[in-house]
């Protein structure tokens, strides 16, 4: 045999190839974990009363998601198939405990307000879903991007909902470090004054209750679908 055998090396794919960039951008809109896949609704309803809580929650979820995706992706070839869920849970739980302890140490106020919902990140369907659907079958690089994409997809919905709810529900805006700033003048509010009732405004209490978060998420889904016809199912 005199013909040369040429080794065909697989073409190396850059970290920011077109395919990988899609991993980042898709979850923001077309396959958003909350509005399209309808995952992680529980925390979206529970901790979106104030923006500051939503910011911290989003950062925590992004951190856990990146950590979980990368670690599981690194371990994907040694995890026995039958116990993969347990392995994933252990990894995620370890990361959540780290987040929880950090929050307790540095942001005790917000940590108290978030209460069990930091612990419940373990059961957040988005995280488990990405581990199962993506990290187990892909290399760490793309897994990392996928985690960031989905994390931000989750975060922007959370922040949008929290923004609306806080403005109308508490008449305020908050951000970690700033605290809550009530920007409406107190003379606006209806109360008994010296010569009868004064003021005309009242905060919308329903916005603070969880059902309204569902309605706000629903309205976002409505707007998104009317803009993006591809998302509308047949019949």
């Amino acid at each position: 045999m005199s013909t040369e055998v040429q080794e065909i090396a697989p073409k190396k794919e850059g970290l920011f190839s077109k395919k990988n960039r899609k991993l980042l951008s898709d979850p923001l809109n077309d396959s958003n974990p909350i509005t399209v896949q309808v995952l992680g609704i529980c925390s979206a309803l529970a901790i979106t009363v104030q923006v500051q809580q939503a910011v911290i929650m989003s950062l925590s979820v992004v951190f856990v998601m990146i950590g979980g995706n990368v670690i599981i992706s690194l371990m994907r070839n040694i995890i026995p198939d039958r116990i993969r869920i347990i392995v994933q849970l252990v990894v995620v739980a370890a990361l959540v405990i780290i987040v929880n302890e950090v929050l307790k140490a540095y942001l005790p106020d917000i940590s108290e307000k978030l209460s069990v919902f930091v612990g419940l990140i373990i059961t957040n369907c988005i995280i488990m879903g990405r581990l199962e659907a993506f990290a187990l079958a892909n290399k760490p690089g793309p897994s990392f991007l996928d985690a960031i994409g989905n994390g931000i997809g989750y975060a922007w919905i959370l922040l949008a909902v929290a923004f609306v709810r806080e403005i109308f529900g508490s008449g305020a805006f908050s951000f970690p470090g700033l605290g809550q700033v009530k920007f409406l003048p107190s003379s606006w509010f209806i109360k008994a004054g010296d010569a009868g009732m004064v003021g005309f405004y009242e905060n919308n209490n329903l916005m603070i209750l969880p059902p309204m978060a569902l309605v706000v998420v629903g309205v976002i889904i409505w707007i998104q679908r009317s803009k993006n016809r591809a998302l509308i199912e047949e019949n």
Binding site: A192, N205, L206
Partner: peptide
């Protein structure tokens, strides 16, 4: 649910709150 103060208490009479205050 949104404005409970305006939907309960002594609000059923015209200007009752006003006069009371």
């Amino acid at each position: 649910f949104a404005y409970p103060k305006q939907m309960s208490g002594e609000i059923w009479i015209h200007e009752a709150l006003q006069n009371k205050a």
